[in-house]
Nucleic acid binder design. Structure first.
Lengths: 320, 320
DNA sequence: ATGAAAGCGCTAACAT
DNA sequence: ATGTTAGCGCTTTCAT
């Protein structure tokens, strides 16, 4: 039998109320009582039941994290930073992989609501506005337009695209192409391509859905390269850039002599283990920090902006 | 105001119990009542409060996941698989990064307990046996000896080490070395080195703590290579192997001609984007499946084994 | 400085 | 087939 508050009360010879006061350091307590109660808690190995607490309107201190998956290294690093920030603030993270699966995302959304989470951070977008509206908990989004009133935190996708284009142009590239995950509904990510074309107009964009297998992605890439014969390539994320580099190497061409490559994301993993790749780096830790800050503001009913755009930076490698 | 069960009851003109029965599809219900109640739920936008449910002894259906971090791609992929399995079984994952920080791990352990989680899966080990004993929820461990009665699921570390050694030996390696993260207390991971030395005895082991920065790791590696002049290298995880490859390339040596390298883990990320590396692959999806299966058994008070060892396989690359 | 009583939202006996 | 009552473990008035 697990000891509960009333057991502690009996053992300490006080009322449940007093025990509650000791736990929460609330109201007037005599040193003696505090001591007695703490002793009793020790002896019984008492642990407060958080569910019971949350029931009287106390917050659960749970935050839902909805992302397509954790195996993508960019999400992994972002989620890692989010967990650290949330823990600092006394919140616990519920991990929800939406897997590009609307019904799973919907189920998770309802579950989070049913479990009285204090808030939700979402980098996924499989559902319609109505689904998000139904949720009571405040939501903040990473890099997605979920609904008009849901704040978005993202890196400066447009400037990032511009920076990539300027970098390629400066290296003498004349015929670049853009390889992009399919511009999934209302993601500001497509701004990367727009920024690029702001500098180098009429650059062709090849869409390769992010959920294709690496093998299939490679084949599509191969075809694109053969057809377009580019001398420069901007991949909208680093793993796609890595794939492109593999193909180019295998085809007997040389990076950067024949084709220059620039990616996007700049995760610790890729920059550490694949420093060869030149890329545009998103400030992952800052993004996480802002996401949590803004969410906490919303939870506390403080005013927040509609959009928070964080600066990117060029991370030079040997692929340009 | 959020509608609750009693509001639905009033609106539908029935008792709270009946509403509860409809929600849980339990006991005898007339079609008519079901319809009335469901209509009322619709109209009020009613959502059950899971916390209140869990309070009467119902399970919370939360599982705690304790790992050092999510940014390490191996943990990321394992956690990803775990989330998928848990969701299938109707469980939600609470993400807990222990960060090699005992007090954070202890706090998480207590929090999980306080929130009445149904179980815990841990791949971290910063604490003593007593800390784990205090926890009520059943615990299953990945690759760590946490306490005598906590079941362990792991890949076949010993055979993996043997396989690595046999592979290097077969490639003609005469003077191999092992690079290993420090053999942190009671981890079966040290069995990788033991297995290797079962085949190639007296191979020197160089310990490089996993929490060193990549820069520092590189320096240590550099020194080790200079001193030992090996013609073969077994790294106890792939990222360390990747680092070694970088250094060897930079030093003007050639992999595999001058030094042959084999890693351990074989994550999708590394095999897809760094196919050059030969490695011993852990069956991540199966590990996740077994972890969840065994945990569910423990939750249901079914008997479980003390240890579950899953087979590894050789993944050939170009580094041997 | 401490206690008694009521109630958070829901479910589980035990009626009827 | 449905309702009444009590209670999960805790906190919160309101007393004293």
């Amino acid at each position: 039998m697990v000891a509960k508050l009333t057991d502690v009360a009996k053992r300490a010879g006080v009322s449940p109320t007093t025990v509650s006061r000791v736990i929460n350091r609330k109201g007037y307590l005599s040193e003696k009582t505090i001591h007695k109660v703490e002793e009793a808690m020790q002896e019984l190995g008492y642990k407060p039941n958080n569910l019971a607490r949350s029931l009287q309107g106390k917050s659960s201190r749970f935050i839902g994290l909805i992302f397509p998956n954790v195996s993508n290294i960019f999400y992994a690093e972002l989620i890692n930073s989010l967990e650290i920030r949330l823990f600092e603030q006394g919140y616990k993270a519920i991990l929800c992989n939406s897997e590009k699966n609307p019904s799973k995302e919907r189920e998770y959304l309802q579950m989070l609501d049913a479990n009285q989470v204090d808030g939700i951070i979402s980098g996924s977008h499989n559902l319609g506005i109505e689904d998000y509206r139904k949720v009571d908990a405040p939501i903040i989004s990473f890099d997605r337009n979920l609904a008009p009133d849901i704040p978005i935190v993202s890196s400066d996708n447009f400037e990032g695209g511009r920076l990539a284009a300027k970098t390629l142009r400066h290296a003498g590239v004349k015929h670049p192409i853009i390889i992009s995950g399919r511009d999934d509904s209302g993601s500001p990510t497509k701004r990367r391509g727009e920024g690029f074309r702001d500098v180098l107009p009429e650059t062709k964009i090849i869409h390769i859905p992010g959920d294709y297998s690496p093998i299939r992605k490679k084949m599509e890439l191969q075809m694109a390269l053969r057809k377009e014969k580019p001398d420069g390539l901007f991949a909208s994320d680093d793993t796609t850039a890595l794939l492109a580099m593999q193909i180019i190497d295998q085809a007997g061409f040389t990076v950067p002599d024949d084709i220059k490559i620039i990616g996007y994301d700049g995760t610790a993993m890729v920059t550490t283990y694949f420093p060869r790749l030149t890329t545009i780096q998103q400030p992952i830790a800052e993004i996480a920090q802002v996401l949590v800050e803004v969410l906490l503001k919303k939870i506390n009913h403080e005013p927040v902006d509609a959009e928070y755009i964080l600066p990117v930076s060029l991370l030079p490698g040997k692929s340009i």
